[in-house]
Amino acid sequence: MPGPELRPPQPKRRLKPAERRSQIVDAAVAFFAEVGLEGRTRDLSARLGIGQSLLYKYFESKEALIEAVFERVYLDRLRPEWRDWLCDRTVPLRTRMLRFYTAYTEAIFTYEWMRIFMFSGLAKAKLNARYLAHLHAAFLEPMRLEIAAASDAHAAVEMEDIWNLHGGIVYIGIRRFVYQTPTPPDVGPAIERAIDRFLSDVVSVTGPSHPR
């Protein structure tokens, strides 16, 4: 009985420049999440099956590649409409905060986000500081102002209180992806409890924006 017909190997499709660049960034995200920002571009090129010279055709330096990773993992996941959600006073404050943190954790609770963020901090890279500054200006400061506006007598709300709430929620992801300790499969109830404790402890919300 004749064996199966053997077909000649198909030539690899030549990627367009934009596709090749995106492929390199995707591979770099996975690579740096695994080995840290000290990982060598030579090893990354080997994983991709390309020469290091081709990688540097698209990124003039390792720093430029890390910058592209930063944009892909961090900035591209932040949605401008989240600020609109936080500032929509036709919706109860508790609902706005819960909607924001549900979307935010869905975006960042990934292996790549958490590990690159921790590696960046350990390497004293400037990525974390830039990200946190952007997060503060785009979302956390507007949230603070909305909480103050909804509270009795427009009470002062300290930014440190906002960071404590934010850090506690994000720490669930750190435990899951960095420390690899058990966390709730559904983080929604934990986020709800954190927001409720925050609103109860920090401000007394009344009127149309009552948290309940």
Results as ranks from 00 to 15, higher is better:
R176A: 15
R77N: 04
F100Y: 11
I147A: 03
H134F: 06
D76G: 07
L122P: 01
Y111M: 15
A190Q: 13
Y111H: 15
P80E: 09
S204D: 13
N164L: 05
T105A: 09
S22A: 08
L55T: 06
P9I: 08
W85C: 04
Y171Q: 05
K62E: 07
F59M: 07
Y101N: 10
R7W: 02
S120C: 13
D84P: 01
V91P: 00
K57P: 00
W113T: 15
E19I: 02
L98F: 12
D88C: 03
R197V: 13
L132G: 02
I24D: 00
E5A: 09
R89V: 02
S120W: 02
Q52F: 09
F198Q: 07
L98R: 14
E81A: 04
A33D: 08
L54V: 11
H210R: 12
H210G: 03
C87Y: 00
R130A: 06
W85T: 07
D196M: 11
R42P: 01
E19V: 07
L48N: 09
S200R: 15
R14D: 09
R83V: 04
L48S: 06
A123E: 07
Q10P: 02
A64N: 09
L15Y: 06
P184D: 08
E81C: 04
F198A: 13
M114H: 15
A30S: 12
V202M: 12
Y56F: 13
E112I: 13
V202P: 01
A18V: 05
E158H: 10
D196P: 04
D88Q: 06
L98A: 14
F32L: 11
K57I: 06
P185E: 15
E63G: 06
A125E: 07
A148F: 00
T41E: 05
R212S: 10
Y171N: 08
A155R: 12
R79P: 00
H134K: 08
M114E: 14
F177I: 11
V35D: 05
G51Y: 09
E192Q: 14
P184N: 12
A64H: 10
R83C: 06
D26E: 12
P9K: 11
P182A: 14
D84I: 01
S209G: 10
